[in-house]
Amino acid sequence: MRHTKKDWLLAGLTGLSLAVILLLLAVLLGQIIWHGAPVISAEFLTEKPGADMISGGIWPAIYGTVFMTLLMTLAGVPVGIATAIFLNEYASPRSRIAKVVRLAVNNLAGVPSIVFGLFGLGFFIIFVGGSIDSLLYDDPTPVWGKPSILWASLTLAVLTLPVVIVTTEEALRTVPRELRDASLALGATRFQTVYKIVLPNAKGGILTGVILAVSRGAGEVAPIIFCGAANFLPYLPTDLRDMFMHLGYHVYALATQSPNVDAAQPTLFGTVLVLLVLTFSLNLLAVIIRARSRAALRP
């Protein structure tokens, strides 16, 4: 087909917008790798930070991020998968309960992350933690009713819930209806059909979705500012009620509250690079699992 000037103009303009985005992405990654990579050393990754937060390493932040992410996964992912199974396998799509759950999931996905922070503070710390304290202890010093890695993880579990639900549902939908029919026609109960046919066939997709959700949760900072992240903590959290250091929060605190931001710059870039590597390797893992599970469905 012959292209006119206007054709070229439209292709050019839309192409330009793509180029701008890709360029920004490249600059971002380039800058972070360029300034961050020289900072990375065995010492940086394994040592505790010095008292000025600039010298030394970021091991407690790495540890705290991973620990928190694991707790969050344990708390949120089973609930998310169960909800997706309920929506896709049990509830009829037109039932009121399914509609309400779906509406709730969609809205939960749109709640700003800082509002989750307020929720964690108001619900988990003040209400749940405070109630436990007043039941168990006479002493007014809070034991449970204070920021901790437990409450931060639970808050993030709620935040990642909609992502887990939506991606798991997508994975369940890829299992052909014929397989469910075959199983039911053989006298399987609905639960047996889900457990033996649907879940094994959706495994790869579910895992991919879960990892994507987890990687999103791992990098969120706003919700944990008041729920458990610590500016500086020379020890590692061993108890669920301990506060913890977090890579993302460390970046925020160091970049905005450090008395000498210029001196902190190398440490900052290094920390950002570690955080990016952590979330990207999770994403990469998800992509690999997705590709492999797609290949497995073919004969």
Partner: peptide, 23 residues
């Protein structure tokens, strides 16, 4: 491009904030 945009979507907002602030 599609994975690149997915990559962009996967960058934690604190990193984007840092990028905007520093660079």
């Amino acid at each position: 491009v599609k994975p690149a945009i997915e990559l962009l979507a996967g960058i934690p907002s604190v990193v984007l904030g840092f990028f905007a602030l520093m660079v």
